[in-house]
Simulated scan of single mutants.
Amino acid sequence: MAAQPRPTAPSPVSAAEFAGLYARVRRPDGRGAGRGALDDITPRQVRAAVAEVGSGLTVTMAAPVETRQGPDNPDPCKHVMTGAVAGHIHAEGLQFARDRIATNVHGDADSHLDALCHVVFDGTLYGGAPASTLTPEGATELSVELAHDGIVGRGVLLDIPRLRGVPWLEPGDSVTGDELAAAESAHHLRVTQGDLLFVRVGHRRRRDELGPWDTEEARAGLHPTAMEFLADRKVALLGSDGNNDSAPSTTEGVDFPVHVLGVHAMGLHLLDYLQFEDLVPVCEAEDRWSFLCVIAPLRLPAATGSPINPIAIL
């Protein structure tokens, strides 16, 4: 595949332009209307996604959980052994190895899912639900429990560094809607209603090869206007190996415009900080970039998100 020229840096988005963009992509569902964009996945589409399976290979799209502190992970997962460990093993009888984990679900290193209650914008949640539904005990509406039956459908991976002919996008870079369309053409497919869309920016490969950095200051992601591509195609979910949002923000007065548009306006569950380095070689070898995808969040009835391990089945 011939590399595409690096696009000109997208223009900043003014507050007025963002308001217009929000109105254009907003899902018309009212409060309490189902599971947001996941409702666009029909049983027929799930059956069609099963037909994507050819070789039967299963590939993870999650990164290993980080327990080490770093510039992008100041509050890492804490893993403690609470049962049988070396030095405390009895010579006879039964013991159990046990452990406990505590994690910051919405950190900048570990793979996780953002529920529809995760984004508060202008005092409301998705569908107009009031932010007061976020109580000290947890979310009383739009929690990760909406996905308790799992998320199953056709996954589509659009590899933007491959399109550009580079190993990764540099922090601060943005992916445009035109690039998403170019990548779908290069991968010989079309993103359609109910698809689970994954966009690779190369964040994980850069982190693995060059080391972690402060992702609050700089990271690659989608340009806000790229969300019109997702709205037009009626995708059901968005995931990336980065945060989905680029930094610094391109939008006046909004630090995470893709999160606002995706979760708050469009009702998309977002998957942040995945890794596609295991999947890309398989897609290249099989020359196909779509697959059956299975995502099973933890059943945390009042939580704003969940650790996640999405599986691609090719």
Rank of each mutant, 00 (worst) to 15 (best):
residue 298 L to W: 03
residue 277 E to Y: 01
residue 142 L to N: 08
residue 60 T to P: 00
residue 237 L to K: 06
residue 248 P to I: 05
residue 164 R to S: 02
residue 301 P to A: 02
residue 106 H to N: 01
residue 229 F to Y: 15
residue 10 P to K: 02
residue 241 D to Y: 08
residue 164 R to Y: 15
residue 195 D to E: 09
residue 54 G to R: 15
residue 261 L to P: 09
residue 259 H to R: 13
residue 310 P to D: 04
residue 197 L to K: 10
residue 114 D to N: 15
residue 138 G to S: 02
residue 56 G to A: 01
residue 125 L to Y: 10
residue 12 P to E: 06
residue 219 R to C: 07
residue 168 W to Y: 15
residue 136 P to R: 03
residue 179 E to L: 07
residue 305 G to W: 04
residue 119 V to E: 14
residue 189 L to R: 13
residue 43 P to T: 04
residue 156 V to H: 05
residue 245 D to R: 02
residue 111 S to F: 00
residue 104 N to D: 10
residue 140 T to I: 02
residue 188 H to N: 13
residue 233 R to M: 06
residue 161 P to C: 05
residue 244 N to W: 01
residue 189 L to Q: 08
residue 264 H to S: 07
residue 66 E to I: 02
residue 231 A to K: 13
residue 258 V to A: 03
residue 85 V to C: 11
residue 227 M to I: 05
residue 250 T to Y: 11
residue 178 D to A: 15
residue 137 E to V: 04
residue 238 L to K: 11
residue 252 E to N: 08
residue 255 D to A: 15
residue 215 T to Y: 05
residue 264 H to C: 06
residue 169 L to C: 11
residue 276 F to S: 04
residue 241 D to C: 01
residue 274 L to G: 12
residue 81 M to N: 09
residue 188 H to W: 09
residue 5 P to S: 10
residue 179 E to Q: 15
residue 229 F to T: 13
residue 196 L to H: 05
residue 215 T to S: 15
residue 22 Y to P: 01
residue 270 L to C: 07
residue 300 L to P: 00
residue 222 L to N: 07
residue 79 H to I: 06
residue 121 F to G: 00
residue 62 A to R: 07
residue 172 G to E: 11
residue 150 G to E: 03
residue 37 A to F: 00
residue 21 L to I: 06
residue 244 N to M: 09
residue 291 F to K: 01
residue 153 G to H: 10
residue 68 R to T: 13
residue 93 G to P: 02
residue 138 G to L: 03
residue 89 I to W: 10
residue 18 F to T: 10
residue 21 L to H: 09
residue 157 L to E: 06
residue 147 A to E: 05
residue 264 H to M: 05
residue 240 S to L: 11
residue 243 N to A: 05
residue 128 G to H: 08
residue 52 E to H: 11
residue 303 A to L: 01
residue 22 Y to K: 13
residue 13 V to F: 08
residue 264 H to L: 03
residue 231 A to D: 09
residue 159 D to K: 11
residue 235 V to A: 08
residue 63 A to Y: 00
residue 87 G to I: 11
residue 169 L to F: 09
residue 156 V to D: 07
residue 126 Y to C: 01
residue 77 C to L: 09
residue 255 D to N: 11
residue 305 G to Y: 05
residue 35 R to K: 14
residue 10 P to L: 04
residue 119 V to N: 12
residue 28 P to L: 03
residue 220 A to W: 12
residue 167 P to C: 05
residue 225 T to P: 00
residue 115 A to E: 05
residue 1 M to C: 03
residue 308 I to D: 00
residue 192 T to G: 12
residue 120 V to W: 00
residue 42 T to M: 03
residue 140 T to A: 07
residue 81 M to I: 04
residue 218 A to H: 12
residue 108 D to C: 11
